[in-house]
């Protein structure tokens, strides 16, 4: 019933060299499957979003990935559009980025989909705001699951999500009174 520890001397017949499998073009990743890692789908999604919201700017397009930056005022409208019309209903995560050299903060919503045939696609919607007055509106009405991700982004980057029900500290101590720690001007102790 237990596994016998095999004798290290016994060598296992080496598997014969595999017939060269069509290895996916790398980069886009090690991850790309035998399917078509082309940009067609990402480009057509990008076109739909920009025609719905002309202010949206395509940041990058990759196989199965698309990042669109939207002015904060228009984000909710775009978010509702991608959820209801394009099927991006499954929030994956929310990230902040501190662009200290440009004096900007960025929030990125990563949204996946549960609709048939689109589960492999991840859409990133981002908004940028001035670093000294980082106020945006919450996306909880669009994706309920954004609540804790936004709360984390609030405490780590000091971004204020208007309409968020509870922006108290989730990971930081209650009495934390230093800079938000993931901002670039916060220096970890001992560094």
């Amino acid at each position: 019933m237990t596994t016998a520890v095999s004798n290290p001397g016994t060598s296992v017949a080496a598997a014969p060299p595999q017939p060269a499998k069509p290895t996916p073009p790398s980069g886009a990743a090690a991850a790309a499957p035998s399917g078509s890692p082309d940009l067609g789908r990402a480009n057509s999604l990008a076109a739909k979003i920009t025609s719905e919201c002309p202010a949206a700017k395509i940041e990058w397009v990759k196989p199965r990935r698309l990042k669109v930056s939207v002015p904060p005022a228009a984000l909710k409208e775009v978010a509702l559009f991608v959820r209801d019309s394009l099927g991006f209903d499954h929030i994956s995560t929310v990230s902040g980025v501190d662009w200290i050299a440009k004096n900007m903060l960025e929030v990125v919503y990563f949204v996946g989909s549960t609709s048939q045939g689109q589960e492999d696609f991840v859409l990133a919607l981002s908004e940028r705001m001035a670093r000294d007055s980082p106020v945006v509106s919450t996306m909880i009405e669009v994706w309920k699951g954004a609540e804790y991700h936004e709360r984390e982004t609030h405490e780590m980057f000091g971004i204020n999500f208007q309409g968020h029900p509870d922006q108290s500290h989730l990971f930081l101590p209650e009495d934390w009174n230093d800079l938000p720690p993931l901002r670039k001007d916060y220096v970890s102790p001992g560094r």
Partner: peptide
């Protein structure tokens, strides 16, 4: 790997 475009 994707950032470096390396072929594993």
């Amino acid at each position: 790997d994707e950032l470096m475009n390396s072929k594993v």
